[in-house]
Design a protein around this nucleic acid. Structure first.
Ligand SMILES: [Mn+2]
Ligand SMILES: [Mn+2]
Ligand SMILES: [Zn+2]
Ligand SMILES: [Zn+2]
Lengths: 138, 138
DNA sequence: TCAATAATTGCACTTCCGTTGCATCGGTTG
DNA sequence: CAACCGATGCAACGGAAGTGCAATTATTGA
């Protein structure tokens, strides 16, 4: 159970009670979570604390932020060994238009794109919208 | 000069003075525009009118909405013959982190992605971030 | 033509999410 | 214990999207 604490410390984040709870909650859920989702799960905690916790996590490579096209930022735990900050883990994301959940498809990498002359790519974001496996009844 | 009016009428949108002006403005600019951009260009017009004009345009296949990751919706005129509403024109978009402009790369289509079992794709959004041709000095 | 009708526009207001400033709390250190 | 510093809580702000309704303008058809 000290695993979470170690993960935080290894990434230079002090493992406070709140942070451990948030980390565990995100690990338990298998989908990307919005600040509001976490807020609802921790009613007693202040919104700002959760907000800053997510930012701290993101700055230290513990979570990555996901823009799934809903205009609500989502967050998901990084896979161990994922170097988001180096833009080396450009997996795609899937947003289900039925259940409104967003998941990381960490195995599916964004294919290389040939850009027109003069354009320099530094980052990429690919979101597929549709029906997720749970909702497709498959 | 009746071209714009015809384009609007052909798409079932009544060509009011305001709409023609907005269409011309979007055609003149070669980049995707946010509501605020248009608002600044038409100071005398009400924001709601511009907002609803863009929505009307989008609902009738005159513009398409672009989510470039800035959490601000952008809009760009559809190419003639682009069937956005049928998700058949999945070109990618480029967002320059230097000048903050977003452009359609209508020639670059989003490659087909093989999804895991059970996932059904209906739409896709691919945004490349980096330096645009104007800013790269190329 | 002109009244009736429908669509468009303008104004005020609300909601939602993200963000910040500042005071307070609490643990760590010397 | 005292001092310090990071974490947390409270309050407020700002931008962007969206809505209700009244006023205005365009269209219809008697
Ligand atoms: Mn992810
Ligand atoms: Mn486009
Ligand atoms: Zn689903
Ligand atoms: Zn640029």
């Amino acid at each position: 159970m000290k695993e979470v604490e170690k993960r935080l410390e290894d990434n230079g984040v002090r493992p406070t009670a709140m942070r451990i709870l948030i980390y565990r909650y995100m690990a338990e859920k298998e989908v990307a979570l919005a600040l509001t989702d976490i807020e609802n799960a921790f009613a007693k905690a202040d919104r700002t604390t959760l907000y800053r916790t997510l930012r701290t996590f993101e700055e230290n490579g513990i979570v990555h932020q996901i823009d799934d096209g809903t205009n609500i930022s989502k967050y998901a735990l990084c896979e161990p060994g994922c170097n988001c900050e180096l833009d080396q883990d450009l997996h795609l994301h899937f947003h289900c238009t039925n259940c409104d959940e967003t998941v990381c498809l960490t195995q599916q990498k964004i294919p290389h794109i040939n850009l027109p002359e003069g354009y320099i790519a530094e980052d990429a974001n690919l979101v597929i919208k549709g029906i997720c496996e749970k909702c497709s009844g498959q």
